[in-house]
Amino acid sequence: MREIQANLLTETIARLAVEANCVLPCDVKRRIEDARKNEPWETAQGILDKIIENYGIAEANTVPICQDTGVCCVFLKIGQDVHIEGDLRAAVDEGVRRGYTEGYLRKSVVKDPLRRRNTGDNTPAMLYTEIVPGDRLEITVAPKGFGSENMSRLAMLKPSDGVEGVKAFILKTVEEAGPNPCPPVIVGVGIGGTFDKAAYLAKKALMRSLDERNADPYYADLEAELLEKINALGVGPQGFGGRTTALAVNIEWMPTHIAGLPVAVNINCHVTRHKTALL
């Protein structure tokens, strides 16, 4: 059994929250820069140039890339041989509180979805835990903006809808979102499981590096096909037309019921942020 002090989680999460919000991951930068090279539409080229300039300024000055510094999603992969000394939930929220307060990040969380009073410190975190073998603790902090979150959709398709139904639903979701989620977007897709697991898989898909394709060639081909189809829609950066509507499609899947075909699409904007540390 390995002991990890809860305050180490707090410090790590506070640091990751600031880094994630100010420094765009290299894989996302590369995709944007490649898209700029392959973008034939002049207006779209100009927008991609501004997007590149923007994340450069953010990184150089340690300021947020986007003012929507998001709800703070925290993914913990906890080794089954790890014991956390202290209150895990409180330690995570304290990390968010500290990162968002000391890092000059926006506080965008309301305590109650209907009565809507801001909590003032961006807590609570959206916390996801997974128990894995080993004695390490992996922490991923992923600020999630709501311009793109609001354009996400879930459908309980029928088995007879098949892969064509899944493709049609994903394309429809991206096309209807149009300019709203700040394209170019990253499309996280979850297929299978249950109603809630599909949504979780879609969110998890957004954490995967854009340099990595699905390990199963069938799904890797589906990702490539969907990316091509999305980029044939013509929505373009910011919705002003162009080739670059999406930077990547990441699919995660899992077993499901004989009667069902759940599919969830979680859209992220070009400011797709996540930062991981291993304790």
């Binding site: 953010a58 300021v63 890339i65 986007c66 003012q67 929507d68 000059y104 709203n180």
Partner: peptide, 22 residues
């Protein structure tokens, strides 16, 4: 339509891009 991030010391305002209008 904007909700900026807090200004850091020496800044007039933090990051301040548009939010979704609908």
């Amino acid at each position: 339509y904007v909700g900026p991030t807090p200004a850091k010391p020496g800044q007039v305002i933090g990051s301040a891009g548009p939010t979704t209008s609908y």
